[in-house]
Nucleic acid binder design. Structure first.
Lengths: 271, 271
DNA sequence: GCTTGACTCTCAAGTAGCTGGAGACCCCAT
DNA sequence: ATGGGGTCTCCAGCTACTTGAGAGTCAAGC
């Protein structure tokens, strides 16, 4: 019978951890002196402790280990949990590898430019959004503003209030300065029936823009400088080994007639 | 100016997190209504928020991010921190990959044996230990017991009390049933001078057994069944892609004359 | 029997980055 | 005035422990 300190030296587990396991009932000491409260451990508790450590190493929580050890958990359930852990760890590994390459890219950036970039690219999860949208092929990108105005001109009088800033979706596979296939989308909360028609005579279609992961960047200022932000986000996506998984979106967070100038969020769905 | 809920929808960061950042001073709202306490955010705070998210993604803590954003941290310091993170994440990745393969091995084990192994192999960190030891080539492994008795017979009368269970180190490269080069080591707290001589006429040498990582298993019961434990630990080491990095140790946790039989810990230094 | 030093006990708080809930207050539309 | 949804503050909880305070225990030496 060993006191906790000796036992700790034998099993190389900190005293505090042994006390913690004892309190949780995971590894109760062989005896506890009822007068002094001293915990006494026997060498034969090492196999149980090692089982705890091994299961912990496999990624089980102490709760799960407790259930396993007290046979509340069948071998089949354990197997299922391990499968789950396997998937989790696999995902963790790929995520951490991606993070590692982001750190490496950032280090390269710092060393080459010795400065932080103006605006950051970040990866975000985007939920699917129900929208009312107008899709049209435009000869000039500046017509987007007209479309937006036309859209709001139909929705607001009809009592339909978008639940977020409107955004455009550029359906062309590659960038074109003319004849762009663009969709202007207004997020709405619930299905609308019937769909309105704009003052300009355009009709809305109603659909759900799918969610997923997207690389986003905030572009501040006039649209004629937007290519810089596109270059930044495009470089970031390439550097981080991601693949563009859908048409770009531009969300118009602040309108161009605002005194501070427009603010736009560029979103590239990626995977 | 947006209230916290709208801003949360725009930046896709939970309200609770925004409030947390606000409390930490990382991203104070543009204004706070002094009467109601309502937080009001401006779109132009998105770049700062995105910088926070980007740095967080690189593995910096919120404290470090705060220092970076308020320019208490130079670019050089930031670079140093990122280098550190790079190393940390790299190590994390290799560790998680190792853990993943341990989970996979365990799954294979469960599927083949449909049962838990009797005793677990675990990986532990071992500190270096100062020992007094006797090294000898034995014709029969059973002489180990004699050596141990001889060792204690010298130490205890000399007032030297080992600070842990004694253990043997098998210096032979490969297993031999005879002519084993074995060292019996008694852990001690402080340097001893002069080194004693055993009743059997053997002399101790004093040295430090190096620490490091080791795969360990508890073997319970008589020594003639110890090959099973060796097989288990050997298989585990091979399965987990580790390499044996030093001579095996056997720690005698409970002596063979104990009514419950002996308990031995087998330790393979690995890397 | 006393002292000393090492050890042990319990209980509470701290860690990181939030999340969730309770109870109160606010805003806006009817 | 009312109702429903949003917001506020504060507090607890999450994981697996670690650290520390303050008090009690053990064994050896005098």
């Amino acid at each position: 019978m060993y006191r906790i300190g000796e036992f700790s030296r034998i099993c190389r587990v900190p005293v505090s951890a042994l006390r913690y396991y004892s309190d949780l009932g995971l590894l109760p000491p062989e005896t506890i002196d009822p007068d002094t409260g001293y915990r006494y451990y026997a060498v034969m508790q090492l196999p149980r402790l090692n089982r705890i450590l091994a299961l912990k190493d496999l990624g089980l929580s102490l709760d799960e280990i407790g259930a396993t050890l007290s046979d509340e958990l069948s071998a089949a359930e354990l197997r299922g949990m391990l499968r789950l852990k396997q998937a989790e760890i696999g995902q963790l590994v790929t995520e951490e590898q991606a993070r590692l390459s982001r750190v490496e890219n950032r280090l390269r950036l710092i060393e080459s430019e010795r400065d932080m970039p103006d605006h950051e690219v970040v990866l975000k999860g985007i939920e699917a959004q129900r929208v009312l949208s107008i899709r049209e092929v435009l000869t000039d990108p500046r017509e987007v503003g007209v479309l937006i105005g036309d859209g709001y001109g139909a929705l607001l009088p009809a009592g339909i209030i978008p639940v977020g800033p409107c955004f455009s979706i550029y359906h062309d596979q590659d960038f074109k300065p003319t004849d762009l296939d663009v969709e202007i989308a207004f997020p709405i909360a619930d299905q609308v029936d019937p769909v309105p028609v704009t003052p300009g005579g355009r009709s809305f279609s109603q659909r759900v823009v799918p969610g997923g992961k997207a690389a986003v960047i905030i572009h501040e200022g006039p649209y004629d400088a937007i290519e810089e932000s596109y270059a930044a986000i495009g470089g970031w996506i390439a550097d981080n080994g991601l693949r563009i998984a859908g048409p770009v979106q531009e969300a118009y967070l602040v309108a161009p007639d605002d005194p501070g100038g427009p603010v736009t969020e560029i979103r590239f769905p990626v995977e």
